[in-house]
Design a protein around this nucleic acid. Structure first.
Lengths: 135, 135
DNA sequence: CAATTGGTTAGCCATTAAGCTAACTATAGG
DNA sequence: CCTATAGTTAGCTTAATGGCTAACCAATTG
């Protein structure tokens, strides 16, 4: 669990580079050889291979060599692990938001009671959280 | 839209550092001053401020100074943007997986027809995708 | 076997990142 | 007004990143 975090470091660092993100995107569509992957990029092969290596170290990509061609495929666990991090943060964030919203609602109600106006239905707090609610 | 991607660069780069991830996690629970944020870390303030600055550049955090205290809060759009990237990749990945699964199913069926065994209901392909289906 | 293809290793270079100290600014509090 | 507090700016060092070329295997293929 101590080194789990360091894996996140590497995954995010790997994804911080547009070349590597493009590689990941390409591999989402299916496995490919190093040569195939490198072809769209104007970059010397050794430089490109470094990116592949970074992706492998991060756990995002696995590869094996058969004959003289190395085939790369996505290793989705790492990707999913990173995605989970976001979902976890968002859960906390939204919980807080909801609490805040409840607090604001309570405030509004109290103010309403204090002032005793004609109508309490003053919905200015339209929910800004809850993106893609059900989906 | 050309600079939108470069924003992803910065968001992922920002999140690649454990200190900065910790800051984001902390801010998910609510706003805080620079001093409060810095307190858990054994780091000189200027170093810490660099992290804050990186987070601000990435769009993950906004801050404003009132009096002599700077208050930082999370700016969730950037976080959500990064999360979307994952979801998009996963969608592609899963679509491919499903196609592959369908292909395997078809193969199995053809083999079954070729061999003419007793039963075709040989579900060895239990779906490994579809995590957290409905939520 | 010779030549080509596909990748790999080694080493170089420029830029950026992450940390530090020291010195400074500007508000708050006494 | 003086001092302590909260950040900030400037400048430095070290290490990591991202790129290159050149030379080098090792499988195919003619």
């Amino acid at each position: 669990m101590a080194n789990q975090l360091s894996q996140l470091d590497q995954v995010f660092a790997a994804l911080a580079d547009p070349t590597r993100r493009a590689i990941v995107m390409r591999l989402c569509a299916g496995e490919a050889s190093v040569g195939e992957l490198a072809e769209p990029f104007e970059m010397a092969l050794p430089s490109f291979m470094k990116h592949i290596h970074v992706l492998e170290l991060s756990g995002l990509v696995r590869s094996e060599k058969s004959g003289r061609v190395r085939t790369c495929r996505l290793s989705p666990e790492a990707l999913v692990g990173a995605e989970d991090w976001f979902q976890h943060q968002r859960a906390i964030w939204e919980a807080r938001l909801d609490r805040f919203e409840a607090y604001v609602m309570k405030l509004k109600k109290e103010r309403a009671v204090a002032r005793r106006p004609s109508k309490t239905t003053d919905k200015t707090t339209n929910k800004t959280s809850k993106r893609k609610g059900a989906e």
